[in-house]
Simulated assay, not measured.
Amino acid sequence: MKKIRILQIVRKSEGGIKKHLLSLVRLLDKNRYEVAVLCSFDEKTQEYLKRLGIAVYNVGIGDGLSLKKDYRAIRFVQKAIYEFKPDIVHMHGAKASFVGRIACFAMPVKTVVTVHNFANYDNMNFYKKKLLLSLTKVLDKKTHQFIAVSKALKEDLVVNQKIEKNKIKVVYNCIDTSFYEETTLNLKEKFNLPQDSFIVGSIARLIPAKGVQDLIKAASILKNINAYFFVAGDGPFKEELQKMIESLNLKDRFFLLGYRNDIPSFLRNLDLFVLPSHEEGFGISVIEALNEGISVIATKVGGIPEIIQDGVEGILVEKKNPEELANAIEKILKDEKLRKNMSVKGKESAKKYSCDKMTEQIQQIYEALKGR
């Protein structure tokens, strides 16, 4: 049987999109599919893909709109399509799907777009935004299939981008620890913390939309609680967040650890996981925390309420509300029975997010497209 050739296109990222793509290409049926990835991942990740037998095309796809850079990227994608000859081009994220779909516009390939996050035009001027929206409208009509990683994202595509419901399938992300390092991380020992203290943690790219600033403010409210706060992740907002930590006299209680590739080990140190995002397409770090039996507090945004039932696996709070967040943290830390109940419910709930299930659903989409 002739293999179906799939070209995956993704821009550089270190969060949920990257995790999703690596899980997918690792688990796709090698007897049925031949896969290539067009990306600008770091050298270590590209070598990992090549060891899986995947062809890698290294190209940078930048943020925003840049006629010169985007034209160069579009031409490179077209060259990769001519060379690899895919049956299906599967694009991940807004910018990769913008560049990729223009490149595919007049080519005899089927196109799939996975939407991982809500559209954000905050940093774009009026004319660029208008151009991008106009082009996206045309590209949406030509796209054969959309995948949304949450029901909330599907609803957003229907309401705000006017995409037909029957062109969108919801496929949840999965828990995949195979590409993490396993370490013997002991935060209490490493930071010389009291053994009877609580550890509250988060995993986030350090940008304003992830809401780490709200967690810092919540920590400043909780000065009488024997708790220490750790955030795994890096990003352009790090320096500003560090200044906030120091200005609130939290430098001995609140620590920014930077990027880490030992997330399961990090999570096992926690008594409580907090995701204070202002927007979130799905929230893969939440299911990673549930999988480790960690109670969760998260904002009720995007796809989060599809993962967390308020009061069952965790507590949901309003975004941008440090006082409510602080109250929820105090409630869980002071109630050991509640934490244990949430831990049990969370671990059970996490079983739903199987990588085999995710991959099978996407393979069904490929098969249906190939049959058209």
Rank of each mutant, 00 (worst) to 15 (best):
F230A: 01
L272A: 09
I245W: 02
P236Q: 10
S247Q: 09
N249V: 12
S265P: 14
S277Q: 09
R268W: 08
I225G: 02
L267S: 01
N226V: 15
L248Y: 13
A232K: 01
F282P: 04
P264N: 00
G283R: 05
K243A: 13
A227I: 02
K243P: 06
F266Y: 12
L241S: 01
L270A: 05
K238I: 08
D271N: 12
L275I: 14
K223A: 10
L248R: 07
G235M: 13
N249R: 13
L272F: 05
L275E: 01
P276G: 04
M244L: 14
K251C: 12
I263Q: 01
S247G: 04
L257H: 07
Y259L: 12
G233T: 06
G281H: 10
N226H: 14
Y259R: 11
N261I: 08
G281R: 03
F254V: 03
L256R: 02
N261L: 14
G283I: 03
F282Y: 01
Y228E: 08
D262L: 03
R260I: 13
V231I: 14
F254N: 05
L275W: 02
L222K: 10
S277D: 08
H278D: 10
N269S: 14
N224I: 08
F229M: 08
N249T: 15
E239W: 15
V231R: 08
I245Y: 06
R260Y: 13
G235S: 11
P236A: 13
L267T: 00
Y228T: 00
N261R: 09
L241Y: 01
F255K: 01
G258N: 08
V231N: 09
G281V: 08
G233C: 03
S247W: 15
E279L: 08
L267A: 01
F237H: 12
N226M: 11
E246S: 15
K243F: 15
N269Q: 15
E239T: 13
F282G: 02
E240N: 10
E279A: 15
I245A: 00
F282R: 07
E280D: 05
M244A: 15
L267F: 04
F254K: 05
I225F: 10
G233M: 00
L272G: 04
I225R: 09
Q242F: 13
D252V: 09
L256V: 10
E246R: 12
P276C: 07
L272D: 00
I245R: 02
V274A: 04
L256F: 05
I245E: 04
M244D: 12
L241V: 14
L267R: 03
R268D: 12
I263K: 04
N269W: 06
E280Y: 01
F254R: 04
R253G: 06
G283K: 07
S265F: 11
K238D: 14
V231W: 04
D262R: 05
F237S: 04
D234K: 08
G235T: 07
L257Q: 10
I221D: 11
D252G: 09
L222Y: 07
L241H: 10
F255M: 05
I221T: 09
G235W: 07
K238P: 15
G235V: 14
L270R: 00
G258W: 06
F254C: 03
E246F: 14
